[in-house]
Design a binder for these strands. Sequence first.
DNA 1: AGAACGATTGTTAACGTTCACAGCGCGGCT
DNA 2: AGCCGCGCTGTGAACGTTAACAATCGTTCT
Lengths: 344, 344
Amino acid sequence: MDQPSPPRPAVMIDVARLAGVSHQTVSRVLNGHPSVRDETRERVLTAVRQLNYRPNALARGLAGRRSRVLGVVSFDTILYGPAATLLGVERAARAAGYGVSIVTLEQLDHDGVSDALSALAEQSVAGVVIIAPFTNTAAALRSLPMGIPAVVVEAGASGGLPAISVDQIAGAELAVRHLLEQGHETVWHVRGPQNWLEARDRESAWRSTLEAAGRSVPPVIDGDWSAASGYQAGLRLAGDPRVTAVFCANDQQALGLLRAFHERGVRVPDNVSVVGFDDIPEAEFMSPPLTTIRQDFDEVGRRCLAMLLDLLDSPVETPVYPRVTPVLVSRASTGIRQSANANS
Amino acid sequence: MDQPSPPRPAVMIDVARLAGVSHQTVSRVLNGHPSVRDETRERVLTAVRQLNYRPNALARGLAGRRSRVLGVVSFDTILYGPAATLLGVERAARAAGYGVSIVTLEQLDHDGVSDALSALAEQSVAGVVIIAPFTNTAAALRSLPMGIPAVVVEAGASGGLPAISVDQIAGAELAVRHLLEQGHETVWHVRGPQNWLEARDRESAWRSTLEAAGRSVPPVIDGDWSAASGYQAGLRLAGDPRVTAVFCANDQQALGLLRAFHERGVRVPDNVSVVGFDDIPEAEFMSPPLTTIRQDFDEVGRRCLAMLLDLLDSPVETPVYPRVTPVLVSRASTGIRQSANANS
DNA sequence: AGAACGATTGTTAACGTTCACAGCGCGGCT
DNA sequence: AGCCGCGCTGTGAACGTTAACAATCGTTCT
């Protein structure tokens, strides 16, 4: 009788019939194959619109080799860094006509990464972006017998896998130099969790920058990215008169540190200057507003995708992309150190 | 010659051959069909392990009807709420054996939602979770001629679509009551962006709770979730002696507000009490630690998924799930109001 | 003029799985 | 004895697309 809007969505053969061509011609038009007459192409496209036809990605993936879907393996998508990177990748992927499937890791060991990758392989994703900047991710990846093209975010020397990274070394240098230039004798450091590569890079750059400037290197304080750990570090540092400048491995830790200082009557930046890392949206509104290192995660996402697409085209050579350079955002939590230089 | 590890992954027919059965029997074993002899099942499973066989999700989706992949339409995955919900949904989905494809909305209008849903439909997802709590999402959804089962997070009366939501009304009531109980004459409100349903709910609950208690309702202050907008609001409220208690629509706004108060010498909670909403991880370490309303996003994610799976089983009746109840987390930003009540 | 060529289109066979149905062997019932 | 039914297994045909090859037509080269 009537089917004003067919309950079953149109498929390629329907379009072909309506346009009076074969299904293969429709396929050619959709994939931009050159040898199709303009008049035919028009006819097909009209039919496509008329039926509101959308090609079935599953069938596409099955028949062809590529699946227009990328996988993303992430860790804690509530953390600012991973979340921002994920968003960047997703945007870039969508712009390039790819869908994005995500898997968040529960455990960080070899099996965790392996399971995640298997799950994605099952969906036959065309490629994978791994946002899991752990020291042991590299090892896990190396031993993976997978044929899927993959790029890694922030994984340092990750077993030969192509990687995109923000230049953590440069960032930490910016932070330490900024503090030294303001007249501080040295800079203390609240580092991030040791199984994160970024944390290690920041710590070692902090150390080497101090050494290069001929300053003493104070003992490092442990942290785990959380504001709570920064708070603990703050309580520990608050009593120490030698502490005039602190570089926190991320902004949340800096927040906790500021809180502890505030409680203990340590004034920032009058008594102690503080620098964070990331430039989370809240940094500008902390008490006082936090000087920090900004990373362009959107750019990271874009480059990741560009790299992955390069890799899909020519799987032989691994493209090399430059590191993304972070910048210093100077706010009220750091100030010129008045005379009274350190102890004496 | 030799193929110690075949370059091409094994498929079902390979398993069948190795186990000495037909491909269909393999399929039955994999899908838990009851009528397979135990001995046969064992033989098949052994072959599966031996070949490291993983079923191809694309082929599965094409042949059967279901595709073991769920779609998630989200908005700003850097915001705490959406990010946490996304994580919750992903975890629950993975536990149920589903993959998750995400699409983040760029624009909030009808076309945006429509495009996102089309993109997911193309991948023939089994169902969709929509984390896009906008006032006009509802309208966009209603006019969507889609056959995909969908559940919506926080969408209030969203055109008959099944929805999971945190009880915003109850949350806002908790906040306002808490402040009134501490002796405040009334409570001011910095609301969220007007196109978010949650913002509207919180505002109207704030209003009605005040009215129910017979208190005057001060003019509402605009905000947009950002700390920056909270800061602006804070500057505006700081000079006003009538302001003794403020309920911010989210924690970021509260952060900005606290910053503005701090700058203007308004002490919290001595002069003004502040309550936020969400209980972001940073809330505990603000200056002072923020009293706020905690939402259990993990629970939201779990229920979302349970609901969607129910819906997949029986598409006829829309299951009804209770709202998730938020709780008050009392911290130092609110305190008992000392005598000196309001102005005069 | 004959043949070979390029442009355009159609035909058939994959891709790897599930679904629908047909078979087989065995026990219990009439 | 024959028949039905049940537990188990196999066979063929989908699903919707792309890849590989064949076919047709008008043109150009020798």
